[in-house]
């Protein structure tokens, strides 16, 4: 029988997985930010990020960031503020707060995702930039 996974072990697995995922994201992010060297190409990329599929990915990214940050705070609380006996409660509080933040993100991001799904256009930008135009 596998060793039972309780709160602490679950938090650890999540923390490690989200941390490593964020490192991968950071590599990709540094690449995409490097396109600032060419404004048109940067704007094109940002417009692409306004498409349904990327909005969905962004929501996932928000979830990963929030999970890592809040659990990071939990670990710090255990180390420095003696929260060790209350770690499970702290974890559930973090889950609660995290859910609220992700819900807030979902309210902003999901409408575009649903639009994309219903129109079948997952990768078409919902914004465009008109270079050289005037306001």
């Amino acid at each position: 029988m596998r060793y039972r996974i309780r709160t602490g072990a679950l938090a650890f697995i999540l923390h490690r997985a989200t941390g490593l995922a964020l490192v991968l994201y950071l590599f990709v992010h540094i690449f995409s930010v490097s396109r600032l060297a060419n404004p048109a190409s940067f704007n094109e990329e940002m417009a692409l990020y306004s498409s349904a599929l990327f909005k969905f990915v962004e929501l996932g990214l928000l979830g990963v960031v929030v999970a890592h940050v809040l659990n990071g705070a939990r670990i710090i609380a255990v180390d420095f503020w003696g929260a060790s006996r209350k770690q499970a409660t702290v974890f559930y509080v973090a889950v609660g707060v995290g859910t609220l933040v992700v819900l807030y993100g979902a309210i902003h991001l999901l409408p575009a995702v649903f639009d994309g799904i219903s129109s079948g256009q997952l990768l078409s930008p919902s914004y465009e930039v008109i270079h050289g135009g005037g306001h």
């Binding site: 704007n43 219903s118 129109s119 256009q121 465009e128 008109i130 270079h131 135009g133 005037g134």
Partner: peptide, 21 residues
């Protein structure tokens, strides 16, 4: 980072709206 070349700013943004295109 270098600012935009003169004449190419600003960059108005338009929302792509409407039914599926």
């Amino acid at each position: 980072l270098k600012p935009h070349e003169p004449g190419t700013t600003p960059e108005p943004v338009r929302k792509v709206t409407g039914v599926p295109q």
